[in-house]
């Protein structure tokens, strides 16, 4: 049973790496938010994996809290994106280098 433990962690690391690369590479803010979700999900997977294999409950509790953090982050982030869109600018992170005006 504990043979799968490295597999879960390697998958989690791979998902985090892909998400981090996506945040750096992509320029559409919506896709960047999805990549952040990907990284939070990979952290969740690592938390639950450690909780299962160390026989503790803290990992699952904090996975729940991470899910709540991700939900509120999406709400605020998408409100920001709609605000930027309504101000008439293109949704391109290279051009949106400043928040003001």
């Amino acid at each position: 049973m504990s043979g799968l433990f490295p597999g879960f962690l390697i998958l989690s690391a791979a998902m985090f790496g892909i998400g981090a690369a996506g945040v750096l590479v992509r320029r559409n803010p919506i896709v960047v938010f999805m990549c952040i979700e990907l990284m939070l999900n990979s952290a969740n997977l690592a938390l639950v994996t450690y909780a299962r294999y160390t026989h503790t409950m803290a990992g699952q509790v904090f996975a729940l809290i991470v899910i709540a953090v991700a939900a509120s982050e999406v709400v605020v982030g998408l409100a920001l994106i709609t605000g930027v869109y309504r101000s008439g600018r293109r949704l391109d992170l290279d051009e949106l280098s400043e928040m003001s005006e």
Partner: peptide
């Protein structure tokens, strides 16, 4: 991005699977 993702994955994998948290046989 691909090079960064692979390097990052190897780094995290190496750090989580070193001999400190996990010994032999996982």
């Amino acid at each position: 991005g691909g090079v960064g993702a692979v390097a990052f994955t190897l780094l995290i994998g190496r750090l989580t699977l070193n001999g400190i948290t996990v010994g032999a046989h996982g």
